[in-house]
Design a protein around this nucleic acid. Structure first.
Length: 414
DNA sequence: TCTGGGGTCCTAGGACCC
DNA sequence: TCTGGGGTCCTAGGACCC
């Protein structure tokens, strides 16, 4: 007897756009896009014109002249996404939420109560439609990877159950791009070899696959991988890094721009770290130049940090050193800070003897511990009086006119 | 046609240790 | 002394995902 298709993958369709159409009935049936400069989500009516997530707004308008851009109702996205997940939770506690609009569920222990996986999937779809008001697609299969492919095939607003006896029949005609880990670059590389379907991929010897794509991806795609694919639904994740970035069009890389941007980014990252009671040892900065090529610089410290000012200063050192290595580049289009090697935050952060450059950590400035205490009080004040109520002067100033932080935190591409 | 933000994982070279 | 292998950590870059 073969195993049952007890892993479900549920994925809300064109999520942000569907929410906007739910909130405003006047938008239903119309091509709309959430976002502005860039399309974060497009309704199916807009997708019919070729509009896609991640596309520049101008290009989207050219493809679809009647495209309507709508602002994001961020808290509604979170609330409705949570509501849909809670419906799935009525069927099983084994849920792995991948993003705001997507989750795996293991229903192997639920079938004696609720029926076959396909029936559970259909019930979830009906209830999400009735109780939340949104379309959701479901894939059911023996493994996570297969269930995810199935839900993509099920879109829009459908369900696909992959019979374990006929997995290969299901997979082989599908395009390689549906395989997790095959993006535009790999797809192009495969197309050059004449491979466009999963079946053609499966017919390729494992060795040449690995030669073409590298060991990890190649092994994953090997035809046997379908049977070894992980199927454990992991109910809690721990973030491995916390970061923030800021795109800025094309700007001259002046000290003022760099310092104020890094302060803003360090503030966002460090605040989130402290909220999670975490801190990190490795600090990575990224600079993207005018031609969209980017470089990174990182440093791993002997002790973890979560203080805003320390993070900003170290990031400044890293960015300046990278700019010095690329002195021909004077125009930048993006700056980013990320903190990894995360650790649990100790009760009180000790003073850190950090000296990686000349600069601003002179005698007389606050110690690590003092800065940490200062940060904590800023965090508390913001919780009580609102985010804009307090902050470092340069940070507060640079908030104005920027993309709302809620937008950043929810941003996704479909 | 040159566009946002938050992440994960992999690769490869080099330093360092035993 | 110019010679081996294995393991871990760090850094930089890149592909990919939502």
């Amino acid at each position: 007897m073969t195993e049952a298709p007890t892993i479900l993958h549920a994925d809300l369709d064109a999520f942000y756009a569907s929410v906007e159409q739910l909130l405003n009935p006047g938008l239903r049936g119309k091509p709309i896009a959430v976002g502005g400069g860039v399309v974060l989500a497009a309704s199916y009516e807009a997708k019919a014109f070729g509009v896609r997530g991640g596309m520049p707004g101008r290009q989207a308008r050219e493809l679809c002249p009647h495209l309507q851009f709508v602002g994001g109702h961020f808290s509604e996205y979170q609330r409705l996404g949570d509501q849909a997940i809670e419906i799935i939770r009525d069927f099983t506690p084994l849920i792995e939420r991948i993003s705001i609009d997507e989750a795996f569920a293991d229903v192997s222990g639920s079938t004696h109560l609720f029926g076959k996986p396909g029936y559970i999937g259909a019930t979830i779809r009906r209830r999400v439609r009735a109780e939340v008001g949104l379309p959701i697609s479901v894939g059911a299969a023996r493994t996570k990877h297969l269930a995810k492919i199935a839900s993509q095939v099920a879109k829009p607003d459908g369900i696909v159950v992959v019979d374990p006896e006929h997995e290969l029949d299901f997979l082989h005609p599908l395009p390689v791009g549906l395989v997790w880990g095959v993006g535009p670059v790999t797809r192009k590389r495969l197309a050059e070899k004449g491979i466009t379907t999963i079946g053609e991929l499966a017919a390729m010897p494992g060795q040449s696959l690995e030669h073409l794509l590298g060991r990890a991806v190649g092994a994953k795609l090997g035809s046997l991988a379908w049977n070894r694919d992980a199927r454990d639904v992991e109910t809690h994740h721990r973030a491995g890094s916390v970061g923030a970035q800021s795109a800025m069009g094309r700007r001259a890389a002046t000290d003022e721009l760099i310092d104020s941007t890094l302060r803003h980014l360090a503030d966002r990252v460090a605040t989130r770290l402290r909220a999670k009671n975490r801190s990190g040892r490795t600090i990575t900065t990224r600079i993207r130049f005018a031609d969209l090529k980017s470089v990174t610089r990182s440093i791993t410290l002997p002790a973890a940090v979560s203080a805003t000012s320390i993070l900003a200063e170290i990031a400044g050192d890293l960015v300046r050193s990278a700019l010095a290595d690329h002195s021909a580049e004077r125009v930048i289009s993006l700056l980013a800070i990320s903190v990894s090697h995360l650790e649990e935050e100790p009760a009180l952060q000790l003073e850190l003897p950090i000296e990686i450059g000349d600069d601003s950590r002179r005698p007389g400035t606050a110690t690590g511990a003092a800065r940490w205490v200062l940060d904590r009080s800023v965090d508390e004040a913001r919780q009580r009086f609102g985010r804009a109520s307090i902050g470092y002067a340069s940070v507060v100033l640079s908030e104005t006119g920027a993309v709302p932080d809620e937008f950043r935190e929810l941003a996704e591409k479909d």
